[in-house]
Nucleic acid binder design. Structure first.
Length: 491
RNA sequence: CGGGGUGUAGCGCAGCCCGGUUAGCGCAUCUGGUUUGGGACCAGAGGGUCGCAGGUUCGAAUCCUGCCACCCCGACCA
């Protein structure tokens, strides 16, 4: 089966790539490192957007939009921030083209050089805080709870569809608060929203935690992240929320008068989640038949495929199919009736499996005779013949079951592949042979983390919020440690 | 930026070493027919500046030189 896909166990990276292309989610573009998100892939992103947007608004956030271009000078205002992003910026230096006088084509008009170069945003803290300076004068102006949906560019050396592209789509929240406590509360709130979204919609169990100093966002006091495990045992960061302290307020001189009349700098957070989550979705659930999409994010939840020999049969089948579609749509289920006659039913079965459609209904002459349909589930690949009425009444339930089942499977996988390790040689062996999450003690020093990374390519994914206090010795240095942290190789 | 590789039809490739009919195959596309309960079959058709530029030669996809692009592996990263 699925002879068109590379086998997942043989070559995981190739399997992933094949899947993205063959399921028609995205393709490489003419621009190195940038992808074209095709309609089916974009439909998943739209579902992600709709849900997150709802969650943001339910917690008091509003949307706004800031420019794509950032004056170069803005970047030098926050020292750590520049350092973090300087190596991967696209820079606009000119604003005009002209005809090449020597031949065909166009050249950059040298007389159009910009006085100050513009950076294509790798993230928007600087341009946003430059605006916030003008918006905030008093505690009454706070908090500001703004989210932006947009694109950013990070000039990555090596790219992979969805997982790491030079341009990607995301949302970035940027909030401003009167107190440290309130900002921290916001940072926590948002990482919780991401975790909730990952688990309830993406069916992706995650570990919430703090980033170590080495892995922290450039310019943040503290970074919280959700980390998920992929089927090859590597970790993938699915969302981050940063407590920025007063760093950006100081860099952009954003002060406000508090209730007592004192001037103080504003406290900030930022948080983001990108199209990378689509990569996580693919890598976490899919199999050798193709995508397995969680019903809550699937662009098509139910596909109806007619099996017919002639137009009379198709007519009879269509009547039943359209009735089912109408009833399901009334329950807010997305249904596609694929009555194209240029592909055989077998081809369509395989194709919708490849595309991860959770439920397939097949209707043939035999079913018309018996008043039945065949229901197939993408998660278990099991088929069942039921009456039309049963199908109509059961589909919602089946979709919920699939959603839950995919989550449980991923949760089980995460449990099986999270190992508590105390010996260095075990640590190395596990990483080399099976991968996975490793909970181990760490002495808390960036130097030790760096050495572990050099020797094993594993990094601290996070210091889990719920990691209990426990006396132990650092896996590498043997120095005392109070809690275990999460190590893994990552994407 | 280091190391490896590839550019030939929309996609995937063969041909290149050893230059020589009209550049070929599979998939896809189009037409006609038979099919349709797990990626159908037959017959026919269309589609190419062989990555670009120069050179060698009677003759270049093939040999030489330069350039460009992309892919894979490392360092960097959501």
């Amino acid at each position: 089966m699925a002879k068109f896909l590379t086998n997942r166990e043989e070559n995981y990276a190739q399997w992933y790539n094949d899947l993205v292309i063959k399921a028609d989610l995205a393709e490489n573009s003419a621009v190195r490192g940038c992808m074209v998100i095709k309609p089916y892939g974009f439909a998943i992103w739209e579902k992600i957007q709709a849900e997150l947007d709802r969650m943001f608004k339910a917690t008091g956030h509003v949307n706004a939009y800031f420019p794509l271009f950032i004056p170069k000078s803005f970047f030098s205002k926050e020292a750590k921030h520049v350092e973090g992003f300087a190596k991967e910026c696209a820079i606009v230096t000119h604003y005009r083209l002209k005809k090449d006088e020597n031949g065909k084509g166009v050249i950059v008009d040298p007389t159009s050089k910009l006085e100050e170069e513009l950076i294509i945003r790798p993230t928007s803290e600087t341009i946003i805080w430059n605006s916030y300076k003008n918006w905030i004068h008093s505690y009454r102006d706070l908090p500001i709870l703004i989210n932006q949906w947009g694109n950013v560019v990070r000039w990555e050396m090596r790219t992979r569809l969805f997982i790491r592209t030079a341009e990607f789509l995301w949302q970035e929240g940027h909030t401003a608060h009167a107190t440290r406590e309130e900002a921290i509360e916001e940072t926590v709130r948002m990482i919780n929203i991401y975790a909730e979204f990952a688990e309830n919609f993406m069916a992706l169990p995650v570990i919430k935690g703090y980033k170590s100093e080495n892995e922290r966002f450039a310019g943040a006091i503290d970074t919280y992240a959700i980390e998920a495990i992929m089927q090859d045992g590597k970790a993938l960061q699915a969302g981050t929320s940063h407590f920025l302290g007063q760093n950006f307020a100081k860099a952009f001189d954003v002060q406000f008068t508090d209730k007592t009349g004192k001037l103080d700098y504003v406290w900030a957070t930022s948080w983001g989640l990108s199209t990378r989550t689509i990569g996580a979705l693919i890598m976490a659930h899919s199999d050798n038949h193709g995508l397995v999409l969680p019903p809550r994010l699937a662009p098509i939840q139910v596909v109806i495929i007619p099996i017919f020999k002639n137009s009379v049969q198709l007519e009879q089948i269509s009547e039943v199919a359209l009735k089912i579609r109408k009833k399901l749509e009334a329950k807010s289920i997305t249904v596609k009736f694929d009555d194209r006659d240029n592909n055989t039913p077998g081809w369509k079965f395989a194709d919708y499996e490849l595309k991860g459609v959770p439920v397939r209904i097949a209707i043939g002459p035999r079913d018309i005779q018996n008043g039945t349909v065949e229901i197939a589930r993408r998660d278990t690949l099991k088929k069942e013949t039921v009456t039309v009425d049963t199908a109509i009444s059961q589909i919602s339930h089946i979709l919920d079951e699939i959603q839950g089942n995919i989550f449980r499977k991923a949760l089980e996988f995460k449990k099986e592949n999270t190992l508590y390790v105390d010996k260095w040689e075990d640590f190395v062996n596990i990483l080399d042979n099976q991968g996975g999450f490793i909970m181990a003690h760490w002495d808390g020093s960036p130097e030790t983390e760096e050495k572990i990374k050099e020797e094993t390519k594993a990094t601290i994914r996070c210091i889990p919020f719920d990691s209990p206090e426990e006396d132990g010795k650092c896996i590498y240095s043997g120095k005392p440690s109070k809690r275990r942290v999460l190590f893994a190789r990552s994407y």
